[in-house]
Amino acid sequence: MIDSVIDFLAPYTFLIVGAVKAVIIAIGLLSSVPLLVWLERRLMGRFQVRLGPNRVGPFGLGQPFADSLKLLFKESIVQNSADKFLFYLAPAVVVFTAIVTFSLIPFGKPFEIFDQKIGMWVANVNVGILFVFAISSMGIYGIVLAGLSSNNKYSLMGGLRSSAQMISYELTLGLAALGVIMITGSLNLQEIVDAQKTVPNILLQPLAFVLFYIAGVAETNRAPFDLPEAEQELVAGFHTEYSGMKFAMFFMGEYINMITMSALITLLFLGGWHSYIIPVPDLLFIGPLLVFSVKVFILLCILIWLRSTFPRIRYDRLMTFGWKILVPLAMLNLMVTSVFIVIF
């Protein structure tokens, strides 16, 4: 009986493995959001010479869980003027695209267990990075839809600003990544990491790294580029009318995007799971995963550091900065890189 079941399932092993990986990564990602919120609040506190949340549980670790419980039980208000269907759809789009984007991120070497070669990713697409950009751009739809369906001038303005900002900075993001892609000669994220075995790309493409980081911060709508949420002018931007869990979903989307962007920077510029200074043993999959996580963690801390340091940029300055400085610099970087590749 069991043999026949195993025989029946044998050709579908890849499906089972894939499903398990997908579930693990989705749960891991979603549960890392409260931790990231906790980290941000604690770190922000320290940057402002205060303590941050420290009442709920040890080191205030219970605070994000208390907050999410509160949000779960809050009344979900939908105002009469809203377009109900789009209003409900928008947060789902944001979270969905955020999670799907992360599924393309490899975060470790493939390892072998029970004669199965298991890669540390949900999907290893041969145009990985293109796919990441494509899906993460879909997230803009969620924000625009939220702004439109709220039927509120602040939401609409916030949604439009956000989409304009994300589309502008996506250009820089792509152009900066192109330098790395040209050096590697591959769009596959795993191959890009493998190409950095000896030297991380940050040393070969320092300008691209800076451009990518700035554009990445803008792409995730984080301070100092958090224009869509400019409290002084737009209340809360595109999620002004959202409350309860629907608001929390926007929040979740933003934090997942933060993780994804940090992971992407790690993969493209910091050599992914390769450790350069301290040799780290493999230990099945723990070593590379640890190296990768540490890099992502440091990048996340820098994101929080930036947020607590810089004031918000004015909207026209943001656009000028994006189009007149970042894009030309990215083009220049691309040109120089291509010249070097042709010569050597």
């Binding site: 010479v49 205060r50 550091w305 930036l306």
Partner: peptide
């Protein structure tokens, strides 16, 4: 410089009294 100021803040003891 701005980043340095916030970093210095981070490593200085918090002024909060619980």
């Amino acid at each position: 410089t701005g980043m340095g100021v916030t970093f210095k803040n981070m490593i200085s003891p918090p002024t909060t009294q619980c």
